[in-house]
Design a protein around this nucleic acid. Structure first.
Lengths: 169, 169
DNA sequence: CTCTTTTAAATCGTGCGCAAGGTAATCGTC
DNA sequence: GACGATTACCTTGCGCACGATTTAAAAGAG
């Protein structure tokens, strides 16, 4: 009489007994995907009040993180760094341009590519953002080792999963 | 001459030297938030082709996971389980109702609450979903221990962070 | 040089996610 | 039983995400 798969100490067997081998729990709280989804949204809403003061949304903040590292970047490079679609990036960048934080201009020697550069205002915002990572890290309440290990695992997971989806694309 | 904070072996010090104590890296790839955000989206797009065959989106799948566990649920309970707003849930449930997978009806003894129940079609969909967790788990490429540990950490992170945001609400 | 293919970006439509504001039912207090 | 407060849900508006389609520029083939 099989119960649930190993490693998922749940009550699924009570309501849906005799799960065949090779199948895992369908309980919401057993899913890694839900843990990720919930954590990602929780962290985003932790950022929200902080970023509100800078007049930024969370994805806009990520764009600025990328631009503070390396300015005058082709949109294609932002697409790679953030793993976002042009359909997401183009309007996002337009809003940041409208806010006066960056400029978009076609590259002279290749009119296909658009280069994104920070304005003075965009550069200046970095000073106000410096305290953010420490505040967020504090709220997460993980010790250094757990923080690093989890971040490394998430990156590996992303890499594995991305390779898989692109193999089918 | 301070370099970057401990645990972040990055090149930030080169471009922005002398980061004061108590401040952490602003490099995109050093952020836990970005690792989470990227992983969550990557996993969602891993689900997409699978869920397409069931005619579901990813949040719709999560709702069904919750309903397969416990049917005839008040929307309030789904809100708690999925940690989603009514503004997200109401239209989402309406689309699932339009697809014939569930029914929504007011509770007789308290006309404020709406109870959600699966149709035969919604219940039947569970059979076709059984193979999903194993397929996803395989693509993630984490061994059992790392999987469990990361899931546990993410849940704790979510709990910590949620408590923080609610304390200010 | 012409024609095809590829590439970088933009556009459009759909479905979340969430804040803000609104409504109706119920509860609590008198 | 009147009435202000609370509760459960709905609606609206905005900003992502992402697939699908389109456009224009550049690269490559013959």
């Amino acid at each position: 009489m099989d119960t649930e798969a190993a490693g998922t100490p749940s009550a699924e067997a009570d309501t849906h007994p005799a799960v065949p081998d090779g199948e895992l729990s369908l309980l919401l709280d057993d899913q890694m995907c839900f843990a990720l989804y919930a954590a990602s949204r929780a962290v985003t809403s932790l950022y929200r009040p902080i970023l509100d003061e800078l007049g930024l949304t969370y994805p806009q903040y990520l764009v600025l993180l990328a631009l503070w590292e390396r300015d005058q970047v082709p949109v294609k490079e932002l697409r790679r760094a953030l793993q976002l679609d042009y359909g997401t990036l183009t309007p996002l960048l337009k809003r940041l341009e409208a806010a006066g934080l960056l400029r978009r201009e076609r590259q002279a020697d290749d009119e296909r590519t658009v280069r994104v550069g920070l304005t003075e205002q965009g550069i200046a915002l970095r000073r106000r953002a410096r305290a953010i990572p420490a505040a967020i890290g504090d709220a997460m309440g993980l010790d250094d080792e757990e923080f690093e290990r989890t971040r490394a695992t998430l990156r590996r997971l992303t890499r594995n999963v991305t390779a898989r989806t692109e193999a089918r694309g």
